[in-house]
Amino acid sequence: LRQRHVACLARSERGLGFSIAGGKGSTPYRAGDAGIFVSRIAEGGAAHRAGTLQVGDRVLSINGVDVTEARHDHAVSLLTAASPTIALLLEREAGGP
């Protein structure tokens, strides 16, 4: 079961505080899956403080732009754009009992 949710992050002077992996033109985060995933969350960064991202979340869109088939460098450029806030649509595998 997959759950979707939106995370809104305000960029700090240190950026957004998370890294992505995967996407076309880069090493897959999961074998056989060209999706883009949250690969790291920086301690004390914007994403960590927001508490809405988890490592392993699939990134579906960035500020309304679909990145499900995107190249890695395109997703990075969307994240590093000048916008002071970033809205992410994420998909998470629902774990637990």
Results as ranks from 00 to 15, higher is better:
Q54T: 07
D66S: 08
T52P: 04
E43G: 06
K24L: 06
C8K: 14
S12M: 11
D66V: 05
L89P: 01
S77D: 11
H72T: 06
G96Y: 12
G22C: 03
R30T: 08
G23T: 00
T52I: 11
H72W: 07
L89M: 10
A7D: 03
A46Q: 12
R58Y: 00
R2P: 04
P28T: 08
S83I: 11
A34N: 15
L16A: 07
G56I: 00
A47I: 06
L79S: 00
P97G: 14
D57F: 01
V76I: 13
I20S: 00
V55C: 08
R71D: 12
A7L: 09
H48N: 09
S26I: 06
P28Y: 09
H74L: 12
E91D: 07
N63G: 07
A46R: 06
D57C: 03
C8Y: 15
R2V: 10
L60C: 08
A10R: 12
P28H: 10
S77C: 10
A81S: 13
P97C: 13
K24H: 09
S39T: 08
N63K: 00
F18K: 01
I36M: 04
G35P: 02
R30F: 09
L9D: 03
S83T: 12
V67Q: 03
G51W: 03
I36N: 00
H74Q: 14
G95D: 12
R58V: 02
I41V: 11
A82D: 15
H5G: 06
N63W: 03
T68G: 05
L1W: 04
V76R: 11
G44T: 09
H74I: 14
G45I: 08
V38P: 01
T68R: 12
R2K: 13
V67M: 07
G44Y: 07
A47T: 06
A10I: 11
L16T: 05
R4K: 10
G23M: 01
E43S: 10
T80H: 15
A34Q: 13
E91F: 01
R30P: 04
T68A: 07
A70H: 05
R2Q: 05
E43K: 10
I62W: 00
I41Y: 02
R49P: 06
A75P: 02
E91T: 03
A34R: 12
V67I: 09
R92A: 03
V76K: 12
A42M: 14
C8H: 15
Q54V: 07
E13F: 05
V65E: 13
R11S: 09
G35E: 00
H5A: 06
D57Y: 01
A42L: 13
D73R: 06
N63H: 03
A82N: 13
R30E: 08
D57E: 01
G22W: 00
G22K: 00
R40P: 01
L89C: 13
G25N: 08
Y29F: 10
R49F: 08
L90Y: 04
A10H: 13
L90F: 05
G96T: 12
G44N: 11
L79I: 13
R2C: 08
S61N: 11
I20V: 10
A47P: 07
G51E: 07
G64W: 02
A70K: 05
S83L: 08
G95L: 11
R30L: 12
D33I: 08
S77Y: 11
R58S: 03
L60E: 06
V55P: 06
C8T: 15
A7T: 11
E93R: 07
A46G: 08
T68P: 02
V67T: 08
S39D: 14
D66N: 09
R14C: 09
E43N: 09
V67D: 01
S77H: 15
R40Y: 15
S12Y: 08
R4P: 04
N63A: 05
T52G: 09
V55Q: 05
L90R: 01
R71N: 14
V65T: 14
S12D: 15
F18L: 08
I41G: 03
L90A: 04
A81L: 09
I41E: 00
A82K: 13
G32R: 07
S26H: 10
D66A: 05
L90P: 03
P84I: 03
L88H: 01
D33G: 07
P97T: 14
N63Q: 07
S12T: 15
A50K: 07
V38Y: 00
G22Q: 04
A75Y: 04
A70G: 09
C8P: 03
L16V: 11
P28Q: 09
R92P: 03
R58E: 02
G96E: 14
P97F: 10
F18M: 09
G15N: 07
A7P: 01
I41D: 03
L9R: 00
R2M: 08
A21T: 14
S26P: 03
R30C: 10
V65D: 05
G96L: 12
T80A: 14
V65Q: 13
V76D: 07
G35W: 03
H48W: 14
T52V: 10
L16R: 02
G56C: 04
G45D: 08
G35V: 00
E91Q: 09
L79G: 02
F18G: 01
S61H: 09
